[in-house]
Design a binder for these strands. Structure first.
Length: 258
DNA sequence: ATGACGGTGTGGCACCGA
């Protein structure tokens, strides 16, 4: 069973690429971020024809998340009730998969702009709230997957320039402590559970031929609860869609559970 | 380099992303 996360940077623009990718990689569940469209514009029909039931939590221009599934979805939650937020960044659902019920938490984490900025403060407050919310989800559900665009590099392996970018946004100690705090709740970084090629990234800037030069960051992550650790079979980044026409700047990350 | 690219909303650009 495969679950994937992909920041599509506008679903209006990227729907053809999503459909194209699903043809070659018909994952069971696909979590999207940065829809940049409202729910009334969500392409429910096109995705249904591709075999996916969807739930979305959109917003005009910015943010927006969705879960697409080949299996039944239920108990959908949008954002955190304990954290008032005008931005659509979280959607959760329980999916009745062949492996049993799976609680999927899909997040478009705050970017944070720069350490010390107001947006960075918001990122930290959002992450504090997220930790409490994920803890409650873990207490309520055994098999939990937390995935999405975290906008955090976990360690120096996740960045093309660890020295030059030290303590800049996505690389700060505070962000990495927040990531570690999520792991400490009882989650496993599925990608690092396996041996991986060096210089594995999930995002590359559109500028400066960054993709061709592999100057990227690994900021899209899939975390699974300890209960799922024995089921981890693979975790990969699929760079193929980064070579599509009009690509997203992110590549999908896929976890295989068995 | 306060740049670069690309998306959005509106507009002749500014703002945001990472």
């Amino acid at each position: 069973m495969k679950i994937a996360t992909w920041n599509v940077n506008s679903l209006s623009v990227r729907l053809p690429q999503v459909l194209q990718w699903l043809e070659t990689e018909p994952v069971d569940v696909l979590c999207l971020q940065e829809l940049k469209l409202t729910d009334d514009k969500f392409p429910l029909e096109a995705l249904a024809q591709a075999g996916y039931q969807s739930v979305s939590f959109g917003q005009k221009t910015y943010n927006g998340v969705a879960i697409l599934s080949r299996h039944p979805l239920r108990d959908v939650v949008r954002n955190m009730s304990a954290f008032e937020d005008p931005q659509s960044r979280l959607i959760a659902a329980t999916i009745d998969t062949p492996l049993g019920p799976l609680r999927v938490l899909n997040g478009y984490f705050v970017n944070g702009q720069a350490p010390g900025s107001e947006k960075f403060e918001y990122k930290m407050r959002w992450l504090d709230a997220l930790r409490a919310w994920v803890a409650a989800e873990l207490a309520a559900h055994g098999n939990v997957v937390l995935l999405g665009d975290f906008n955090i590099t976990v360690d120096d392996r996740d960045t093309y320039d660890p020295e030059g970018l030290r303590e800049t946004i996505h690389h700060t100690t505070e962000e990495r402590q927040q990531f570690q705090a999520l792991l400490d709740l009882g989650l496993v970084d599925a990608f690092r559970h396996f041996e991986q090629p060096e210089k594995s990234y999930s995002w590359w800037d559109y500028r400066e031929l960054a993709f061709r030069r592999n100057r990227g960051l690994r900021i899209d992550h899939i975390l699974v609860s300890e209960a799922l650790r024995p089921r981890l079979a693979a975790c990969t980044i699929d760079k193929a869609p980064r070579r599509y026409e009009r690509p997203s700047d992110h590549a999908p990350v896929i976890v295989t559970l068995a």
